[in-house]
Design a protein around this nucleic acid. Structure first.
Length: 470
DNA sequence: CTATGGCACGGATT
DNA sequence: AATCCGTGCCATAG
């Protein structure tokens, strides 16, 4: 009897607590925002109070104490990341800010954002404030394929600025994630992609000429003529076309985020980051600033007035009000817990992956969610939920899935890419396997083949034709 | 005979 | 419990 009553009064609270924390953890910042908004509207016991902002950096201040960023410069060389929850409202207005006007809220509520916002977010760190309007103009003038439908000249005239300034902004945009986005033509999109690609991979130099001079032949699949134009055989021309088809995408707007593989990938959704990492300073050993984006500005709390009012509630309402109150405080607790978990997770993660965050793919340290869970003393599924579906913005502006931090083979794959890029003559998978082994990565030959495929690298016998032709 | 992709199995991961 | 991933074996192409 006693036992039962206990389990009735205690259990529901803890299980509900756990269940809700779990679901909240699985939500991205934007999904959470929707939930909070709905709850806010439905539950009078909840209250959102505005908070102070740091006057210098405009970030939301923690409940007490100084701004975590601006108070930091005294120890700029700290190895320890600064992790905090931020509402980062300034991001919201990056959309289309015409002379200080705030963006309507609807622009922000979608769980996935549109292409312009997505790109703007990436380039904003490098974007001069006065160029934001230019960027907004360009980005809103994209057609559905991600190509620019107006000319640079028109934009420059409209804003009364030199063409070069518009071009600079455009250059930034083109190299942002759907690489080539904002190019005036499919041809230029391909060229931009090719130049970005050639930074990480060996690319046959003829490819560029093929795009530059033989674009129309290329699109008509007229390989013999293309070969004649470039002075190579028809077969080789076809190989080049194949390479282009597999690695480049003439319609950047159609590419899914992440890989620029087959343009058939229909998903045109771009995710908002849930976590933003930036450098405090430009130095190598700078502290990293990690912001866990909070989806609403201010603090969510239980309305103290409502709590008071409960004692004077009309009889028929007390039960309802009580449940509202319970629900509200539960939600608040759970959100705090969610934030707490996320902060702890990122704190650890940033230390582990510091090299990767600063220096790129090759330095990714393979960690499993299980190991991290053990270190943080939480359940594996907690880590899983916290990571899944979320996105992370790196200091270089790239937005990657948070799960990339748990990629077990990325570093090996980049090593492989380097080997292939530096090879003087095409190496077979077996040879590559041996080379990787020397670098400390022991992978089976068969696995090399898989990685190769993942990276879109052709088999040795095809690579041969793609190399410089003497 | 060598290089590579397909299939499938087992163990790790989620 | 379901899924992912590395790997071995085998068929096939060159």
């Amino acid at each position: 009897m006693l036992l039962q009553s206990q389990s009735h009064s205690l259990r529901p609270l803890t299980t509900a607590h756990l269940a809700q924390t779990m679901t909240l953890l699985g939500l991205t910042a934007l999904e959470l925002r929707q939930k909070v908004e709905a709850e806010l509207a439905a539950n009078p016991a909840l209250e959102l109070v505005n908070e102070h902002r740091c006057p210098t950096c405009h970030r939301r201040l923690p409940p007490s104490g100084p701004c975590p960023i601006c108070s930091q410069p005294k120890h700029p060389e700290s190895e320890q990341p600064i992790v905090f929850v931020s509402s980062r409202e300034d991001f919201r207005t990056y959309g289309i800010r015409s002379s200080g006007d705030e963006l309507p809220d609807e622009e922000w509520t979608a769980a996935t954002e549109d292409l312009p916002t997505y790109v703007l977010r990436q380039i904003s760190p490098e974007l001069e404030v006065q160029d934001r309007q230019l960027a907004a103009h360009i980005l809103t003038s994209l057609d559905e394929d991600g190509l620019l439908s107006v000319t640079v000249l028109e934009i420059a005239r409209y804003h009364h600025v030199p063409i070069s300034r518009v071009e600079n902004v455009l250059h930034l945009i083109q190299r942002a994630d759907p690489v080539g986005v904002g190019s005036p033509s499919t041809q230029e999109a391909l060229l931009v992609q090719l130049s970005v690609l050639s930074e990480t991979r060996a690319v046959n130099p003829v490819t560029e000429r093929a795009i530059r001079e033989g674009m129309d032949l290329l699109s008509r699949h007229a390989y013999p003529e293309l070969g004649r134009l470039l002075g190579i055989s028809s077969v080789k021309a076809q190989k080049i076309a194949q390479f282009i088809g597999e690695n480049l995408n003439p319609f950047p707007g159609r590419a899914h985020w992440g890989d620029i593989r087959h343009g058939t990938a229909a998903k045109t959704s771009y995710q908002n980051p849930d976590v933003v990492i930036s450098k405090l300073r430009e130095s190598t050993n700078t502290a990293l600033v990690v912001e866990i984006l909070s989806p609403f500005a201010g603090t969510l709390r239980v309305n103290p007035l409502f709590r008071k009012a409960l004692s004077e509630a009309p009889k028929d309402k007390t039960e309802e009000w009580q449940s509202d109150l319970d629900q509200a405080s539960l939600l608040v607790k759970c959100i705090q817990q969610r934030n707490n978990t996320l902060v702890r997770l990122m704190q650890r993660m940033v230390v582990i992956q510091r090299d990767f965050i600063l220096n790129g793919d090759a330095h990714l340290y393979p960690v499993t969610r299980a190991r991290l869970a053990e270190e943080l003393d939480v359940h594996e599924s907690t880590v899983s939920r916290a990571v899944s579906g979320k996105a992370l913005q790196l200091p270089n502006g790239r937005i990657v899935p948070l799960s990339k931090l748990f990629d077990r083979s990325l570093h090996i794959r980049t090593a492989l890419r380097q080997i292939v890029a530096q090879e003087s003559k095409p190496l077979s998978d077996t040879q590559i396997s041996k080379l990787l082994d020397k670098q400390g990565y022991s992978v089976a030959r068969r696995t090399v083949a898989k990685y190769r495929a993942m990276e879109g690298i052709l088999p040795a016998r095809f690579r041969h034709q793609n190399l410089v032709h003497q």
